[in-house]
Nucleic acid binder design. Sequence first.
DNA 1: AATGAAATTTATGCCGG
DNA 2: CCGGCATAAATTTCATT
Lengths: 155, 155
Amino acid sequence: MTLDTLDRRILDLYQRDTRVPSERIGAAVGLSAAAVQRRLKRLREAGVIVAETAQLDCRALGLGVTAIVHVDLIDESARAAHAFRDRLVARSEVQQCYGVAGSIDYVLVVIVPDLAAYDAFCADCLLHDANVRSFTTHVVLDAAKRGGGLAVPQA
Amino acid sequence: MTLDTLDRRILDLYQRDTRVPSERIGAAVGLSAAAVQRRLKRLREAGVIVAETAQLDCRALGLGVTAIVHVDLIDESARAAHAFRDRLVARSEVQQCYGVAGSIDYVLVVIVPDLAAYDAFCADCLLHDANVRSFTTHVVLDAAKRGGGLAVPQA
DNA sequence: AATGAAATTTATGCCGG
DNA sequence: CCGGCATAAATTTCATT
């Protein structure tokens, strides 16, 4: 799918706040509300818009601990790595999961109520896994930016 | 602010897809559509719902490179760390920024069109900064989960 | 504090250009 | 592919319990 400049400008506005009316977006980009909606629909169907979600305040929900976890695997073959990944992605505590190049194999963002829950998560998913060589935990002290929008290239 | 079981169940549904009608949420939790909306409004005003955003497909936008960057600072004092953090958070390439405990000081998720843009970002924000002792880049090969919802505790 | 209905706003579908 | 209008749906407000 090809995105024109209008699509990009719409996305740039829309991604930050999905509640802004199409009419306002249209006014900003020089299009009618109907045209904006047509494009948003197309962008959803094409998978450019992956999801429309709400970002919640972890603290208010009693999710007091965020940890960034580095995992080093023993067997890094595709089969073994995918098995590991699929198990982690299925866990609700794992908010993000990235397979990376370099000295480590996976980076996770884990969000849990407290350290006891984090401990339980590690026991379940990491300590218990024969393919995990080692892992390192970095407890987040200051979540300065949790899910900023993307820098939509206007080119 | 205090969240009851109904609030938590509403949030659990709503955070994954903000486009599901309040009537359907109400049917799921045993409330009228109006009651669901009143609660959502309260949750927004209280800051429990931080933002309502769209998740976009990086590839489709031409954002082909995601990197996880570890930064080690020289001066970790609050003043110096905040200065560093504030500068980074203001950059649109920095999608996430966490101050962490442990052997490193900050973890960033940086999303850019290509490696040239990543190089430019590093030059601007990291190499150029006298307070950055060192940094390590982990290029993401497989973004298995980019922004999963939270595991809303139903307690 | 929730419900139901009315009023407003927002989104969707269709048609002519 | 756009704009405008008609229709439908969703959200907000208000009165009531």
